[in-house]
Nucleic acid binder design. Structure first.
Lengths: 226, 226
DNA sequence: TCTTCTATGATTAGAATTTTCATCAAGTAA
DNA sequence: TTACTTGATGAAAATTCTAATCATAGAAGA
């Protein structure tokens, strides 16, 4: 899960980054709208947090821009307490949620989670990428519409790859996501090889292309163009 | 893990309770010191959060009281921004940490976690309860000084019982702790029976008393007087 | 108080999954 | 090339979970 934070206050930006990173998201940030637009042009984000009351420029334009370009990113507006007009305008433009400052980080996190859940489950009940179809509600996976029987770890691994598609993920970040906080205490992450192998095998059996590119010494890249 | 919150502001108290409960702690609260003292007399807490600047009474006395009675509870002082004197006095009296208002709940949570970790790992490297010895660093358990070979789930289960000793824990709360947030989506928690049985068996093999009392229809109680 | 019923807990065996281990293959740098 | 590191593979071991069966506590009713 990749998140873009657009926020000018350095303190707040930093603590948001830190907290959300720790929660397992991949975080990038921009301190103003022009930098944000640059990033949006280049990368895909799953969720964008926009502070809508920055001094230099209009955050609504970002939302407009995203919607015009049919971005799939979820948008959460962060607004100062007093200014509710822009907030409403933003929601009208298609933002998904808003959060008034000051907020606590756990609250932010649960909003993000809720948003991601909504996007994954309600909006489009299916995640479809070429021949792969994922039905998150059932934790089920199909290739060429043939069911593939994945174990929990294999499913988690696939979902992690897909939510980081076209991005290089390290073995460490895989371990963090699939085994949680204590994974750094573990010396060897060899079992990733095993689960990856089993995943590749099961997908290949149903005629799926091997999208998982091994990047020697670095990690893996689930390379796909939808 | 049982936590006592001593805080007079109803709003803050409520949100602390709610958040920490959601994080899996058992929470009790008191709105003033006399009520707090009553609770302290009756129950054992793992951690006590004391707002040290309440209007009626002196929070330092609570800390003194706890220390004089050799309470094992960790103490975190919550203090208003301005008053640092009492904070320092409190730390001198043996409080473990402090947190200035306003704080965010995630921060509070991480302080509590850190405190519990310190208590469990650094201070006394061993947890000793009658014939059971736990070496958390190694996730190792001994009974009558004989090593017991527990699996991860069995160890977690034992630790959960011990950190809630003399307290009734429901099957649901066990599931929440051992399997995390998604456990409520699971219909049956039958595997707890299995893990509990294996744990009991392994402990009994080494001559350990069965401290785990089954409370029909409710849960279990790890009953022990140290 | 004594059955009978029902819900909950215990037990066991076995299936499925996860992890470990040993070995082989391939990439990288000297 | 050679040495070294990283990744892949297969088989076996360990752990976790499922499912079927048995046992017991508590409730309901005679």
């Amino acid at each position: 899960m990749k998140i873009l934070i657009i926020e000018d206050e350095p303190e707040l930006r930093k603590s948001m980054k830190q907290y959300l990173h720790q929660e397992g998201y991949v975080i990038e940030s921009a301190s103003d709208y022009s930098k944000a637009l640059e990033k949006i042009e280049v990368y895909d984000y799953d969720c964008i947090l926009v502070d809508i009351n920055l001094p230099q420029g209009n955050g609504l334009d970002i939302i407009k821009h995203l919607k015009q370009n049919h971005s799939k990113a979820g948008i959460i507006i962060i607004s100062a307490k007093n200014s509710s007009d822009d907030k409403i305008l933003g929601l009208d433009l298609g933002a998904d949620d808003y959060l008034a400052k000051p907020f606590n980080l756990a609250e932010l996190n649960s909003r993000i989670k809720a948003l991601i859940r909504r996007r994954n489950f309600d909006g489009n009940k299916l995640i479809e990428i070429n021949e792969i179809t994922i039905i998150p509600e059932e934790r089920a996976v199909k290739v060429h519409n043939i069911p593939v029987n994945l174990t929990a770890k294999e499913y988690d691994l696939l979902l992690f790859f897909i939510s980081n598609k076209n991005r290089v993920v390290s073995k460490n970040s895989i371990a963090e996501h699939l085994w949680g906080d204590d994974s750094d205490q573990i010396d060897s992450h060899d079992f990733i090889y095993v689960h990856l192998r089993n995943l590749r095998k099961k997908l290949a059996e149903k005629g799926c292309v091997d999208y998982v590119q091994t990047i020697y010494g670095i990690g893996y890249n689930f390379k796909i163009s939808v």
